[in-house]
């Protein structure tokens, strides 16, 4: 059951990477990174149990904290005036559509 859950998390991580690549808005990418971070926490906890090394949980705690800090940081900088009010990243949307 642990292995099955690990595989499911890996599939979800793949999906998050896909969404991070295709965009189309900046906030989709931030959302993908956030989801990827949460799933990494779960993956590391699960791996700790699969491999029988419960000290992996320390790393999972660090991830949970760092993930929050980086998301807040990204939102802080995307709010700031230097970026203007353009939520779309022009580069990749043009390529996509």
């Amino acid at each position: 059951m642990l292995i099955a859950a690990t595989l499911a998390i890996l599939v979800v991580m793949m999906m998050a990477i896909i969404r991070g690549f295709i965009g189309p808005t900046l906030y989709d990418r931030i959302l993908a990174v956030n989801m990827f971070g949460t799933k990494t926490v779960l993956l590391i906890s699960l791996l700790g149990f699969v491999m029988g090394r419960p000290e992996f949980l320390d790393i999972a705690i660090v991830y949970a904290l760092i993930n929050f800090i980086s998301i807040i940081g990204v939102l802080h900088f995307s709010d700031s005036a230097a970026f203007g009010n353009d939520p779309h990243d022009t580069g990749s949307t043009k390529k996509e559509s």
Binding site: L2, A4, A8, I9, V12, M15, A16, R19, M35
Partner: peptide
């Protein structure tokens, strides 16, 4: 096992949702 299964299902549904 039930909790793990349910959690994996929820995560997967979130993954399908984001795509």
């Amino acid at each position: 096992g039930l909790c793990l299964l349910l959690g994996s299902f929820l995560c997967l549904s979130g993954g399908i949702g984001i795509i």
